[in-house]
Amino acid sequence: MAALRTLWMGLVLLGVLGVLQTRAEAQVSLQPNFQQDKFLGRWFTAGLASNASWIREKKAPLPMCTSLVAPTEDGGLNLTITFLRKDQCETRTLLLQPVGPPGCYSYTSQHWGSVNDVRVVETDYVEYALLHTESTKGPGQDFHIATLYSRTQTPREEVKEKFAAFAKAQGFTEDTIVFLPQTDKCMEGHQ
């Protein structure tokens, strides 16, 4: 009887999680007719919004970073991110594997061991891109981040407003949205 009750509770939880996951996925749209070849090249991470406590704690000293997007032979993307950390340039490369429709990718974090789903929600390819990343590290440890990519270090005010509206539509509050200051450090070599 106890085993049957445990099984029943497990199925109920899976059903609830499935509904919640479907709702979250329904809220995050996808760039129509995403063209990966136009998305390639250098982007600057100009804005972030997240439910992660480390972003709220470190948002003041967090400078802009560069991301170089290159194709892989299997149709995925190599995303090489260079950022300033403790006055030193650090580089991380993520292998984004295509999953689902064009513009949907997945990668496994070497640092956290978590699986992350990345969606290109909106882009004009020449000026900005809005991305949404979702990760689950374990029970109760859901991580969501909205990212503003810009082709320049100085995105137009309209693009910033578009990002803020996008982040708020994803449930982020004003205090979780940050625009990263531009820097000359760690930018060379990423043309």
Rank of each mutant, 00 (worst) to 15 (best):
T152I: 09
L48G: 08
E188G: 09
V159P: 15
P32D: 00
A49G: 04
S106Q: 10
E161D: 12
T80F: 06
S114R: 12
V126C: 13
E174G: 05
R151T: 05
L20D: 01
L180G: 00
N116E: 07
T147K: 15
V115R: 03
D184N: 06
E157S: 08
P71T: 03
T66Q: 09
F163Y: 02
K58G: 12
C186N: 01
Q153C: 03
E157V: 09
E157D: 14
A165V: 07
V28L: 03
A3D: 08
V118K: 11
V115A: 14
F44D: 11
K162G: 01
M187V: 03
C186L: 00
L48A: 05
Q88M: 04
T66L: 11
E174H: 04
Y128K: 03
N116S: 14
L94G: 07
P181Y: 04
Q110T: 04
H111Q: 15
F143M: 10
S114V: 07
S135E: 08
P98F: 08
T72H: 12
T72S: 09
A24Y: 06
L40N: 02
D124P: 07
G138P: 00
L20Y: 05
D74A: 15
E134N: 13
I177S: 02
K58F: 06
F39T: 00
P139F: 06
C104P: 00
P61Y: 15
H132V: 07
W112Q: 15
T22D: 14
M1H: 06
V16N: 07
G171C: 01
D117C: 13
G76M: 12
L148I: 05
E161Y: 06
L77E: 05
L94W: 12
T66E: 06
K160A: 09
S29L: 04
L20H: 08
P61T: 02
